[in-house]
Design a protein around this nucleic acid. Structure first.
Lengths: 322, 322
DNA sequence: CTAAACCTTGGAACGCGTTACATGTCAAGT
DNA sequence: ACTTGACATGTAACGCGTTCCAAGGTTTAG
């Protein structure tokens, strides 16, 4: 395997000139360039990425931190890999499984310059631990972060939730339950706020009993509906924190012979493939757009130029469950 | 940002000794080690990954090539990232979108030593093009490859398909249709073979008309069943190439008021999350096991030691569609 | 015809660890 | 007392491009 040095010797030019050829510098005469290129071809020369990274001080790699890989993250990842690839950046995955130590490894890799930047999808370390790594390279987050140095591309779910609520109210549903996720999360807070404000707007009762928390999965959704079946005064609609929960509720409703949307309306969140397949009304969460914005936020540092973020908005996707 | 050289100077020892401390070499006295470690802590020293990669000649990174990211690949990826991480390897994603040139980039990265090895999930380049890169590092494939130098962890689908067939026959279904994928693929070939042999074994008719090809997605499944509705002599069971197709057929069957499994039995393939959710009988494809085997196949070159592959087998997962 | 400007190319240091080989020391073995 | 060997540490080359600065040659403008 030949090296740049060998090409230099074979061609009779200096390493500097060979390097210029490699980097398409205009300061090389045509003949020289051609001679050197010919020799490169002959000797099957390929520059060594590690040497380049070492001397340039950057790797063209972006680390992506996530607890696990799931359907939602997939679409984010897809778009992010796509757009960053377009600018010559590779994406490298750090799945932490929620382990703080493992997650820290990603931050150490930023410090060691294995990656030029980090994208946090979900993280478990304290924010001040994370922010202490900001000096080593740009970090952006999907998940909302309360730190000025770490911008987040997550959207305020207030708008999306309000959209869903208005839709339900319009359709005549008044007894609306909420399946929230993590009770302390910012998203839950926004949703609750939206719920209370919209209900107030239409003079509808806010029933705190119908705030359900820590509902995340299909299974949680199934269980939630099952527990509701025993009650006499049941809600006539359930707003879910994601499409998985909506799926669980829907399949349990079918099992219980409830008419959807007659007896019960269901609204999911995210517009995942699952909701498309099953015909669940949901809120389109512009995830690809957020992924692109994540990269655009890194651009100032990575590419040295500001790039305008694209404006994003939630959309209601009406299907058969409302 | 301090360097190894600075640590050496500050501590009064040579670079070699500092390096030994870093690499936990036993040939350093306890006091020396402690002194050096103390100085490292003080100066917030972190070794530079690129320098290490350059001098060691390897990056501890494995590239994963795929046309796109989808549900099935997710579980493969999850396991692969997990096991390779356990041995200190990072995974870096190359999504090609089916573009040959983009895919070649991954192979060039192997040549340039950006990655130590490659894992092909789906590729579009000719096998002899791919195999010409074997000399630059180990390459394994999920997708079956007909090249001696590129081992594949894909399993012969004959067994899985036979399992599904035996199950259907046992249940009394005799008019069994096949929804195949790519007609020329090895998998389709194995499935067809299994079909013909099992049908022969039970003296059941093989109806070539019921070989459907290029059926991949939910949408394809829906369409297939719709077209079947017009026929007078309908199959009483459909074996699908994946769970997506089964999902499509199932939801269309519901729409058409067909009784599943009374009028029509459906068997999927892969045991994806979707099939679990919807209660589709399917064949469990041990994907995580294949992912682990993929890494184990790289182990001889990467870790310098042979590791035993784990034996894998298909399993029938009975649910509500048979 | 000369000075300023430009183009092409080279020299050498730099980025930062790793490692084969050499040296010096001290204790155990005979 | 002398050899053998284990152990701690140093020296210097190596891995491979990049880039700043300088220099020689040529063209252009005045």
């Amino acid at each position: 395997m030949s090296t740049l040095d060998e090409i230099a010797k074979l061609s009779g030019f200096s390493k500097a000139t060979v390097s210029r050829v490699l980097n398409q510098s205009p300061h090389v005469s045509k003949e020289t360039r051609e001679k050197i290129l010919a020799i490169m071809k002959e000797t099957d020369y390929v520059p060594n990425r590690n040497a380049i990274s070492l001397s340039k001080g950057q790797t063209q790699q972006i680390g992506m931190i996530t607890m696990d890989l799931n359907g939602l993250i997939l679409s984010f990842m897809n778009s992010f890999v796509e757009i960053s690839g377009r600018y010559g950046y590779q994406t490298i995955i750090y799945t932490t499984g929620g382990d703080k130590q493992k997650e820290l490894q990603a931050f150490e890799d930023l410090k060691m310059k294995r990656v030029d930047a980090l994208l946090i999808l979900t993280s478990v370390n304290e924010q001040n631990v994370i922010s202490s790594y900001c000096k080593y390279g740009p970090i952006v987050s999907w998940q909302r972060m309360d730190h000025p140095e770490i911008p987040s591309v997550a959207m305020n779910q207030y708008d999306g939730y309000a959209l869903a609520l208005e839709h339900l109210v319009e359709r005549g549903y008044t007894r609306i339950a909420n399946a929230f996720g993590r009770p302390s999360s910012i998203n839950t807070h926004s949703r609750r706020l939206a719920y209370e404000q919209i209900m107030a707007k239409y003079n509808l009762p806010v029933i705190e009993k119908w705030y359900y928390s820590t509902i995340y999965s299909i299974h949680d959704g199934e269980q939630l509906l099952r527990s509701l079946m025993d009650e006499t005064n049941r809600p006539d609609a359930i707003l879910c924190s994601n499409d998985l929960v909506a799926t669980g509720i829907l399949s349990e409703a079918r099992r219980q012979k409830l008419d959807v949307p007659g007896d019960l309306a269901i609204v999911g969140f995210d517009n995942s493939e699952l909701s498309q397949t099953l015909g669940i009304t949901t809120i389109l969460n512009p995830i690809s757009g957020q992924a692109e914005n994540a990269f655009l936020l890194l651009a100032p540092v990575l590419l040295g130029r500001d790039m305008e973020l694209q404006p994003l908005s939630y959309k209601l996707v009406e299907r058969e469950t409302t």
